[in-house]
Design a protein around this nucleic acid. Sequence first.
DNA 1: AAGTTAGCCAACCGCCACCGC
DNA 2: TGCGGTGGCGGTTGGCTAACT
Length: 238
Amino acid sequence: MAYETAAAMQGESLRKGPWHEEEDERLITFVKLLGSRRWDYVARVSGLKRSGKSCRLRWLNYLRPNIKHGHISAEEEKIILQLHERWGNKWSMIARKLPGRTDNEIKNYWRTHLRKKEMIQEQENFQFGRDNGRQLFLFQGECSRVQNYNAESYKPCDDILDTENRSYEAVGQSDFNLTSSPYETRLSDWISSEFPSDQSEIISQEDCNSTDSCYCYPSWVSQENDLWGCSDSLWNME
DNA sequence: AAGTTAGCCAACCGCCACCGC
DNA sequence: TGCGGTGGCGGTTGGCTAACT
């Protein structure tokens, strides 16, 4: 690892985890002396048992002057929303438009606050079968009748299921988009590429009378082309 | 009061682009 | 022109704390 060279070459292991006050003070001192560009050099010369990368991150996210911490104002939130809509997850670009805020802070804020709002917004605007025609539903619990859903007959889940008698979880494509693990992203991409957007029917597992999990799957997932027996390309992350 | 869950945030990881040799 | 070193970036994780049961 390139970033381990500084301390590793001196036979020392690099420190990880939270920064101590003394480390912060030392880093500030050496950045003032050497500038905030050559982080590997700063890490080496300062004697901090940290990687250049770690020093850079600490400086940018916490120690540099004029940095703002804490409450994101309504105005800032509005800007974040607008820029995210325009640029997507370009956190550093968005951060440049918000003086004193770091990409890390904006990213965290988005994930914990704004994403929820967007999810709610998406659910409100959700038109089953029109925009994202393909939905995967996983119903936990009894599911014994065939249900055909399409854009015209779509009803909110609460209407479809008797919530007093069944617990369920519905996973829509929009939810796949909001998750970010490699496999989920791959799955979402795979669904988009494999199936045309006009295939909107969802049917449930017909002969499922048990109280165990039962799957209601889109009609476009045929027996020959089911999710679990699909081509290697979906699961192969190489 | 103790255990569990959810929210938050600092820090790490891995990938990629750039630059100098 | 290829290669290694470095910085930048986005995604992810882990730990702390508050809220809830």
